[in-house]
Amino acid sequence: MTFLDELSRFLGSENVRAQILANLLDHCYLALLPLVFGAVLAIAAGWLGRGRRRVRGVLFVLSNLLYTIPSLALFMVIPGIIGTKFTSSANVVVGLTVYTTALLVRPVLDALDAVPPHVVASATALGYRPARRFFAVELPLAVPVLAAGVRVASVSNISLVSVGALIGTGGLGVLFTDGFQRVYFAPIVVGIVLTLLLALVVDLLLVALRRSLTPWDRAAPGKAEVSAA
C-alpha cells in the first residue's frame, strides 16, 4: 500500500476527520491564549520597568532564564509550583505564557525606552496623565516591535503545543503519539502539515492585525528592505 492510499484511507473516516478538527481547535486555543496572556504580561512588565534600570535588569535576567528552560521540563515542573494535575492542559497554557512573556519583555522594554522623549514630553504638555499617556502614546509606538515579537512567539507556541500531547493534553500533538503507538505514518504527516499551515495562517493574520493597528508605520517595511539591499 502506498503512502497516499494510507493517507486517503486515514482521512476517509468521518470520525477521524471530526477528531482532527477537534485537535486543531484545541491546538489553536492552547497556542493562542498564551499569546494574549503573554502580550498583556509583557506590557505590564514594560510599564513597571520602563525607565528603571534595576527593574529592567531583573526582568531581563529572569526572562532569559525562563526562556532557557526546555518546554517538556517546564510543563512538568509547573504542577509542582501551581498545584495543577500533571495531565492538565493548564500546564501547557501557563508554560507557553511564560515563554511568550519572556520573549516579549526585552523588545517591549527596548521599544518603550526608544519612544522619543520629546513625544512623551509633548503628550504630557497636552495634558495626558501618565497612565492614559502610556496607552495613548507610548504603547502604540511600541506596537511594531511588540508585533514582531508576537509573530515569533506564535510560531514557537504553535510548534510547542504538540509537546503537550506527551503529558496528555489535546492538540495536534495527539496525532503524533497516535501515529507512533500504531506505527502509522498518516496521522503524523497530517499533524505536521496542519501545524505548519496553522503557523502560516496565524502569521498572516498577525501581519494584517499589525498593519491595521499601525497605519502610520506602513512605509516602514519597504524602507527596511531598501536599507537591507
Binding site: V155, S156, I158, S159, L160, V161, S162, V163, A165, L166, L172, G173, L175, F176, T177, I188, G191, I192, T195, L196, A199, L200
Partner: peptide, 8 residues
C-alpha cells in the same frame, strides 16, 4: 522553526 519537534 514552525516544525513540531514531537512530529519530526
Amino acid at each position: 522553526r514552525a516544525l513540531p519537534t514531537l512530529g519530526l
